[in-house]
Design a protein around this nucleic acid. Sequence first.
DNA 1: CCTTGAAGCTATAGCCACTAGAGATCCTAT
DNA 2: ATAGGATCTCTAGTGGCTATAGCTTCAAGG
Lengths: 152, 152
Amino acid sequence: MFSIGQMSRQSGVKVPTIRYYEQIGLLPAPDRSAGNQRRYDQAALQQLRFIRHARQLGFHLDAIAGLIELQSLPDPSCHDARRIARAQLSEVRGRIARLQALETELDRIAEGCHGDCGPGDCVVLASVADHASCVTAHDAPPDLGDSPRGAP
Amino acid sequence: MFSIGQMSRQSGVKVPTIRYYEQIGLLPAPDRSAGNQRRYDQAALQQLRFIRHARQLGFHLDAIAGLIELQSLPDPSCHDARRIARAQLSEVRGRIARLQALETELDRIAEGCHGDCGPGDCVVLASVADHASCVTAHDAPPDLGDSPRGAP
DNA sequence: CCTTGAAGCTATAGCCACTAGAGATCCTAT
DNA sequence: ATAGGATCTCTAGTGGCTATAGCTTCAAGG
């Protein structure tokens, strides 16, 4: 049996995050010690590792819940699992494409100025102000900011 | 003078988002009509368009606030603007690299199964469970999920 | 002038996937 | 027995919005 701290060390998932997963029903509530502390078995560790890796692969928690449900079926349908994985793949590809459009624009913007702009006509600021100067259709990337959502 | 709805149509930023930007101080509070409705001038529209495009380029709101402050300086330093743009560029590049690692793994996982797995040994599920089978170091992308954050 | 309906107002709560903190309790090693 | 690390619950905060409720204001038509 593992304590929550051991689970955390063995899986790489932080302790509060494990409790959060339990709270939202992604991890089953484990047994408790006499003093009300969580005690996990090997299967729970497996599942937590599954979740962790799926998160690293960019799956949303609800997609992960779907995968877990598939696992628990008597005859786990590869078909469904593959469909979920492919949906994830195409989402990732879409994000890459949008980010590459951003990269093009940002490169153009950042390199357009060589530090010699006079006051009031900085090329960087002008470029950010004006979408018309963009060379790609980098419109509406649904995942614009985003970075440190799950990041420490 | 523009109403908030006109501002929204002219900029592509939704009405509640405009109010939100005002609330957090990214847009200055405009004048009000006799009946307490917001009335914007051309400069405010310019600024909102600037914010909107910067968001499309992936800048965080605090970076945008920095850019706006630069604009308002008597002698806008291109140097600083360029530094901010370059930081954004390298962040975008990092995200692309991490997403490409994910793409590699997801492709491998999704294509590893041809729909013929027997019960209990679906390759997709096994691959998600086991990071050791991954061919890239796709660890800890800080921006894993993310998609529909600002998206409608 | 009066009505109607769209557009505006404020305030609050919710989204995701966590993270941080307070204050209390438990477990283990000495 | 005690020290101190680990754990417990609960609440609130993050970013960048979005949604709802219940009200008021504005502009056009009759």
